[in-house]
């Protein structure tokens, strides 16, 4: 392994950080946002037979968490592939 990160590795790390931050924004908005901070206003909105905030707090947030981790794995696979292609092309 190289002693310090070269340009491509820096690019890879920056992409990784961007992805993590955007996923964590969703994590915060759905979990602590819809489930807690905006619970009062959202509890007036009906979602089938329960309130929307109740659904987020007891079901929706967990579903979104699953999707977030899945998205991370898929996107990182793609990033790994891009990185390997960059190495191969030698630019």
């Amino acid at each position: 392994m190289n002693q310090t990160l070269n340009e491509k590795q820096k690019w890879y790390w920056k992409k990784n950080i961007q992805l993590i931050i955007s996923l964590l924004i969703v994590w915060f908005l759905v979990g602590l946002g819809a489930g807690v901070l905006f619970a009062e206003p959202l509890s007036k909105i009906q979602f089938f037979n329960v309130s929307l905030s109740f659904w987020f707090a007891h079901q929706g947030s967990i579903l979104v968490f699953i999707i977030l981790i899945l998205t991370y794995a898929i996107r990182m696979d793609k990033l790994d592939k891009q990185y390997k292609e960059m190495i191969k092309d030698g630019n």
Binding site: L24, W27, A57, H58, L68
Partner: peptide, 26 residues
Amino acid sequence: LVAFLGYDGTIYLMGWTGGYVLLALL
């Protein structure tokens, strides 16, 4: 816990699964 806390039982539901997101990403 959820049965007796009702809505507020979300602290365990979200707390434990949401923490897993931090673990997996960070």
